[in-house]
Amino acid sequence: MKVSLYQEKETPIHKLDPRTKIISSVFLFVCALIFNHPLYLLALFSPLLSILLLFRSYPLIFRLKYVLILLFFFSLILWPFFVKGENILFWIASYPIYEESLYYGMAMGIRLVTFVVIGLIYVSTTKNEETMYGLIALGFPYPFSFAIGTALRLVPSFVDAAVTIMEAQFSRGLELETKNPFKILKILSVLAVPMFVTAIRNTNMLGLSLEARGFSPSARRTFYLDLKMRPKDLITIFSVLSILLFCLYLRVFLGKGVVIPGRI
């Protein structure tokens, strides 16, 4: 069963150098932090979502649909209680709900979902190993890059083990189809023991296996994957940088894209 989010395809984004993808993702993250107006964030979010859909990665969106919906609605509902605006729209008990804070909540929801979409575009088009190689090429130390790559690698492994453990428990009558949160907690505690045992054993074995194949974080090594910055990489970085600069210009010099001034 496939649990990792990487999609083996030949899209233009797949063909970009991982450094380009890392730098562009960071720039786009910053762009999403510049505005707190829902329309401006929507203008950033829409083309990103289109990219994801254009490359037929909608199964990823489908898999994460509940997370995305929860993120958006939690932001929309919770932020208005914590951020003050100017025009009171209505009251909930003794709490005033401002028009601006409602927009701000909406903007924060879009921002979070935008972060997820940027992340999805990145992980669905970049192998863990490419991320590691990219970080090394960007000047990060090898042990740090290797640790990031390993952490990313272990996520799908643990998810895979968790799926098998859940299947094993279902096979002897464990029922997850309950809405009682206490029962769910009890069920999760049952799953936790074998998951913990499996995680410890696998991590131990992984350490053994790495050493047995001559791995040493400080030793010199060669690289199998070739990283090469091509003109299309430079064009991509330049384009995303232009978007970032344009966003900064709108916010800093023209004061656009803000519903609540003084907040990110």
Binding site: E129, L206, F215, T222, Y224
Partner: peptide, 19 residues
């Protein structure tokens, strides 16, 4: 638990990089 990489060819190449 010996398999470390996310891709078949990279798994074989891992030890070779160490060499």
């Amino acid at each position: 638990s010996q398999i470390f990489s996310t891709n078949v060819e990279l798994e074989v190449a891992f030890g070779l990089e160490n060499l």
